[in-house]
Design a protein around this nucleic acid. Structure first.
Lengths: 220, 220
DNA sequence: ACAAAATCAAACATGCAAGTCCGACTTATA
DNA sequence: TATAAGTCGGACTTGCATGTTTGATTTTGT
């Protein structure tokens, strides 16, 4: 019967009840430093997990420069923390990506989108991997929806206009884009690729691959 | 002072002392069932880890249909087990891959190599991921050496002969091949791609991407 | 069939990460 | 400047995975 304090604090802080829907984190009456710490924790989670995919909650708290209890005050469980971190990460990407014009030549639009995307892919891939261990696949897909839909839509339009080859399903083009982006991110992380060169390298692979060649090789 | 039995048994079984060099597993005088179990454990490790990348030693033993103690009789520690499993996995791949002719047209040879490689990539990727958490990077690279050198050599020859574009470093072509193979494996695993179609899909991406086009897009 | 080799089940010790609870301390805000 | 909100360090429980040990039991090779 003396267990009210922590619970009450958490309730005040989190203000996130019910279903894990999209946002609904109406920060009603949080104190300024509480919000600041919440942000620090989220940022710390991303960088800590990038260093070590299996980072413990203690590691994350340390990385954020905050006590473990404080962290638990904001996020009840580890999955909840990971979920929030991934959400944050993707939302920040969405802020930038949603501004990009997808009009005009599909190939040019694709280049623009890729150039802006690959950095976020790099930042999110670690926390994404962590999330895949603790979150439901449905939740994962839900969080990715917007970003994936944008790229898929562009690829479909490109196919319809003849800018991209149509002998391969969009899903495969999408997957290919995905893995090449990730590959470039990994190469940058291990120092084998200059970040500034990355967009060019990616385009150099993807554009020829996605463009229908008259003298295609697969005729054998 | 009564700790000799298990240790003695292990010593007899493992017969693998000293540096983690290449092989040196001279199976001198193992009993038939011991060797059989060793094989079962190795196979079990691969499938168990494919199901769950964080499979515990108990999980692996169960998957292999063998007691946990028996497993520890063959492999002293978890890392040692993972190492052996990865080694096994790569050696079996090597058996097949080393038979493939790399002569003739570089593009054809590349297609042959890819067609045979991608299955093994699928089988090894989970174990590889597990290994990266417990083994030293040097050891990992050491185990991959042969397979990677073969592919790299082929790509280099292809560049020299003009079959493959030379405006990108071989390392990037290698990485690209790697990630596309992995991507295809993942798509097959989730049922989104027919295993029989995989080689074609892979070639359809990689060959155009690696072939120098006269009307290249990156001129902007 | 007999001794050595290998297996098994069960119990044990250890360590680490998650999550909880407490009491004292600091900071924001009215 | 009070009071509520938030933070901090530390101690604690619980659960799970690693690795060890023991002794009984089965299998193999000869």
């Amino acid at each position: 019967m003396a267990t009210k304090k922590a619970a009450a604090t958490r309730e005040r802080l989190s203000s996130r009840t019910g279903s894990p829907g999209t946002g609904s984190r109406g920060a009603a009456n949080q104190r300024a430093d509480a919000l600041r710490n919440r942000a620090k924790i989220l940022a710390g989670a991303v960088t800590a997990i990038r260093k070590n995919p299996d980072a413990s909650v203690a590691d994350i708290a340390a990385e954020a420069g905050v006590g473990r209890q404080t962290l638990y005050g904001h996020f009840r469980t580890r999955p909840e923390l990971i979920d929030a971190a991934l959400l944050e990460s993707l939302e920040r990407a969405e802020d930038v990506l949603s501004e990009i014009s997808l009009d005009g030549d599909a190939r040019d639009a694709f280049q623009r989108l890729v150039a802006s995307s690959w950095v976020f892919v790099d930042q999110s891939r670690a926390v994404l991997a962590a999330a895949q261990k603790e979150l439901s696949p449905g939740r994962i897909r839900e969080l990715h929806e917007k970003a994936e839909a944008r790229m898929r839509g562009l690829l479909e339009r490109g196919q319809a206009e003849g800018a991209f080859r149509s002998d391969l399903p969009v899903s495969w083009l999408l997957t290919t884009t995905h893995v090449v982006l990730n590959g470039a991110a990994e190469e940058v992380r291990t120092g084998k690729l200059d970040p500034d060169d990355a967009p060019w390298f990616i385009d150099a692979i993807l554009l020829p691959a996605f463009t229908h060649d008259a003298h295609s090789e697969q005729g054998r």
